[in-house]
């Protein structure tokens, strides 16, 4: 039962349990897996263009109001940002290991890595909304002496907010995968759903890999 889990709510709603792993419209399991992967890659292309709107706006306003953006960026905590990047890279690693375990059909390892990825994801969201990072940004937004700093803050909140939303969807998706793994639905020859959610998770990680330097490191932090 492979489905490109475009909408996270979807993967969980398929009540119909299909005895053989193969869907009726596919010829063989290999075609079903390829279709699932290819479908997710096409969906990731749409996600890339979904973020393109905000990236285009960011690039334009950063070059138009560079000084304001640099001032705004210096309000943010770089070390916290770096830690968040490290956490997300770790979650990507555990996710890859989870897919690896699913392929081997090793249920215990799969559950272990899936839960660690979820924990790391929640940790990332936690770090994002801690006092250290959140309040200075909010104060900067309100008390911005100069409106270009306010514009940067708007971009900061909008882009990280969009990313956090995708993180929440990802964590929901992995939660569903963990439940399915717990119920033993993920077998060695039928692990495609985990692989597909892994692709989605890695994509969200890549978005953050770009967000971190673009938002936190404008113009470097040398004093």
């Amino acid at each position: 039962m492979s489905e490109s889990a475009a909408g996270s709510s979807l993967a969980g709603t398929s009540g119909r349990s299909v005895s053989p792993a193969l869907h009726h419209q596919f010829e063989d399991i290999e075609q079903q897996r390829e279709a699932g992967n290819f479908g997710m890659w096409v969906f990731l292309a749409t996600e890339m263009l979904f973020f393109s709107g905000v990236f285009t706006g960011y690039i334009i306003y950063r070059s138009l109001y560079y000084s304001g953006f640099a001032a705004g960026s210096h309000v943010l905590e770089v070390d916290l940002g770096a830690a968040m990047t490290a956490v997300l890279l770790a979650s990507s690693f555990t996710m890859a290991m989870a897919v690896h375990a699913a392929r081997q059909g090793n249920r215990a390892m799969l559950l272990g890595f899936l839960s660690s990825t979820i924990i790391l994801g929640i940790a990332f969201l936690g770090m994002k909304f801690t006092g250290l990072n959140f309040h200075p940004a909010v104060d900067a937004l309100r008390g911005a002496p100069e409106h270009t700093v306010e514009l940067f803050m708007c971009f900061y909140f909008f882009m990280t907010g969009l990313h956090a939303l995708h993180m929440i969807i990802g964590i929901g998706l992995l939660g569903v995968m963990a439940i399915l793994a717990w119920r033993g639905k993920i077998s060695a020859e039928h692990y495609n759903r985990v692989e597909v959610s892994g692709l989605y998770w890695h994509f969200v990680d890549i978005i953050w890999i770009y967000l971190f330097p673009l938002l936190y490191l404008i113009g470097g932090r040398y004093k």
Partner: peptide
């Protein structure tokens, strides 16, 4: 997806005055 982000930006600008399209803020 690009119309999706455009609509989200319109909603964000109306609700939160994000300022991406507001000339007063730049």
């Amino acid at each position: 997806p690009v119309i999706a982000i455009a609509m989200v930006l319109i909603g964000a600008e109306r609700l939160l005055h994000v300022g991406i399209f507001d000339p007063a803020i730049g």
